[in-house]
């Protein structure tokens, strides 16, 4: 992957206020793939009785990770925007643990990028959530 594309993708997520608010960290980036980690934070708890984080925060992590994978695709000339995103919540994320999302842009046409992703907490095995999404492919201005 070219240094330019890596820098673009890194810039894409690292200057985003919501990404900073959730303290997300870009762990890995490659051609059409990205890994992003989101630490546990009491502010994003969705179930006060168990301390499990809210699905909405997982959605934001997935959307960010899938979008980054699209930008990191070698055939994508520019930026991207989400067309649709579906998240399946397989199980509750363990309270106190970070969630790490991995996304892969597995097909790209002139106008649409197809992406799938998974999110794991610090336990191995069954993911916390899976995602499938479609994203726009912007033509270079």
């Amino acid at each position: 992957m070219s240094a330019d594309k890596i820098k673009n993708a890194r810039d894409f997520i690292e200057c985003v206020p919501q990404v900073l608010a959730l303290k997300m960290e870009l762990v890995e980036i490659a051609d059409g793939a990205a890994v992003i980690r989101m630490p546990y934070d009491p502010q994003i708890v969705g179930d006060p009785e168990t301390g499990v984080i809210h699905g909405g925060a997982v959605s934001t992590l997935m959307d960010t990770c899938c979008g980054t994978a699209v930008i990191a695709h070698p055939d994508n000339p520019g930026g991207t925007a989400t067309i649709s995103l579906r998240i399946d919540y397989l199980r509750a994320a363990a309270p106190g643990q970070a969630v790490t999302a991995r996304a892969e842009c597995y097909h790209l046409t002139r106008s649409v990028a197809f992406v799938r992703g998974t999110a794991h907490d610090e336990e191995t095995g069954c993911p916390v959530a899976t995602a499938t999404g479609t994203f726009t492919v912007e033509t270079k201005a």
Partner: peptide
């Protein structure tokens, strides 16, 4: 709030925030 921004160039709300808002 500024922290809800997902694309600082447009600027636009983060798609994840919009999804989370609908889920909440």
């Amino acid at each position: 709030d500024e922290k809800l921004i997902g694309n600082p160039h447009l600027p636009a709300l983060h798609g994840g925030v919009t999804a989370a808002f609908l889920e909440v």
